[in-house]
Design a protein around this nucleic acid. Structure first.
Length: 417
RNA sequence: GGAGGGGUGCCCGAGCGGCUAAAGGGGACGGGCUGUAAACCCGUUGGCUCACGCCUACGUUGGUUCGAAUCCAACCCCCUCCA
């Protein structure tokens, strides 16, 4: 393959981050000469980002590691409008309070992956509400409206898809792409930001910004996208059994985060090591050769490395240890969710299915009963036969607690108090 | 504003007076096989109750009927065409 001159381009190509780029050779040339500035925007639609945003985040990290300046753009303003890309229906409108709450939650995560500061390659964070909120409608239309044709806007996938599926696309959402293009122009002027990166679904929006900068300020700019991540079997990344894999600790425990990576499909292990860890490529190449059950060891390395980045090494090791105890020794790990139950209640006896509900292993009594009937419920690793079995202090194990399991992977501890 | 079509369970979608907690699919969960993988096979999939059973559910509100997701009326929302 081509030899790239810049460390950045070489790294993204080798590690599998590159999907599309407006002009890869020119970017390579430019990145080889010295630090450049690039940004990725994150909308504030939820109180935390989830694993689906990990590729862009890791891209920013790699960008900084290879000597450049990343800009994290919080979409405080654009979230008010709502990005129609990849949505087959309008999102309900979020209130401004909700948006600022979400932003506060999302912000936390970046400091774990990027170094912020004032230096030439230190990351900075900006909020597009700062410039979008003061826009004067008619002035804005006169200045930038002429650079966008409806003909072109209609051709964008985000728009076309909605129209084809006969789903409504509001005028509000229709404006999203213009605002995002304007963001890029604004960042280009303010911070000399010359590249916008993002997920492949953002390609159209990114191109608009590149184009706008060229037309308005006659300056070159780059656009680059990362592939949309799916697992080998086609599932979108970030969603599993209990919902999204959130990056914030208050929404998903490090243990569950570790488990997510531990359960990676065989075929994805190498790809994920390259994308979601800092591990050198030669080392990954070696690990990737593992076959059969050996690959399980590699998955643990992946899980611990990925969790270390997000939650710190201590939390990652604790998660690994809990997993080892739980799965390999059948014992209890400290990280398992623990629920306290009054000792008096246990003395009197609690019906099995009620206890499962208390331990949040089932969301309703019916679900708990079904679980037990299906043979998936265990009490101290022994299958429970009857959903009405009484559980009492007699059932405490050697550690003075009760271990409940729903299936092979979900466990909880009941502790009398 | 006018004409037509439509709103069903987590999602898609069938039903079009009783046999309907509502076909089928997807997803999800559990079991089997394995390696905490994938694929495959099987089961479960509204809530409450130990249970008889009760409650909630087919856009909303009323009505017809012994009986309505199914018929009627008004209203709300969406889509298509016309203005």
């Amino acid at each position: 393959m081509t030899n790239y001159r810049s460390e950045f381009v070489r790294a993204i190509v080798e590690r599998g981050f590159l999907h599309q780029c407006t002009d890869l050779e020119a970017l390579d040339e430019r990145a080889a000469q010295g630090p450049i500035t690039a940004y990725i925007g994150f909308d504030c639609t939820a109180p935390s980002l989830h694993v689906g945003s990990m590729v862009p985040i890791m891209l920013l990290r790699l960008f900084q590691q290879t000597g450049h300046k990343p800009v994290v753009l919080m979409g405080g303003g654009t979230t008010k409008v709502g990005d129609p890309s990849g949505k087959d229906e309008s999102r309900r409108m979020l209130t401004e309070e909700k948006i600022s709450e979400n932003m506060a939650g999302i912000k936390q995560v970046f400091s774990k992956f990027l170094t912020f500061g004032d230096g030439p390659t230190d990351a900075i964070m900006v909020n597009n509400d700062d410039w979008l909120k003061n826009i004067q409608y008619v002035d804005f239309l006169r200045e930038y409206g002429p650079h966008f044709t409806i003909n072109r806007m209609m051709a964008f996938d985000s728009v076309k898809l909605r129209l084809e599926r006969e789903q409504p696309l509001t005028f509000l959402e229709f404006n999203y792409m213009i605002l995002q293009a304007y963001d890029f122009l604004e960042l280009n002027r303010r911070n000399d930001c010359t590249m916008q990166m993002g997920g492949s679904d953002q390609w159209g929006n990114i191109i608009n910004g590149v184009e706008l900068i060229r037309r308005v300020d006659s300056k070159p700019a780059f656009g680059l996208t990362v592939p949309l991540m799916t697992t080998t079997s086609g599932a979108k990344m970030g969603k599993t059994a209990d919902g999204a894999i959130w990056l914030n600790e208050d929404m998903l425990s490090p243990y569950d985060y570790w488990q997510y990576w531990r359960n990676t499909e065989d075929a994805d292990v190498g790809k994920f090591l390259r994308l979601f860890t800092d591990m050198p490529l030669e080392e990954i190449a070696k690990l990737e050769k593992a076959e059969g059950t050996e690959i399980n060891e590699v998955k643990k390395i992946l899980a611990t490395a990925a969790t270390t980045l997000c939650h710190g090494n201590q939390a990652a090791l604790a998660a690994e240890e809990t997993a080892r105890k739980t799965f390999e020794e059948g014992k209890l790990g400290a990280d398992l969710p623990t629920f306290e139950v009054l000792r008096e209640g246990l003395e009197a006896g609690i019906t099995a299915f009620q206890l499962f509900r208390k331990a949040e292993l089932a969301s309703s009594g019916g679900e708990a009963k079904r679980l037990i009937k299906g043979g998936g419920a265990k009490l101290n690793d022994v299958a429970i036969k009857s959903e009405t079995q009484e559980i009492t202090l007699q059932n405490l194990n050697a550690d003075g607690v009760i271990k409940l399991s729903a299936g092979k992977k979900r466990h909880a501890i009941i502790k009398p108090v």
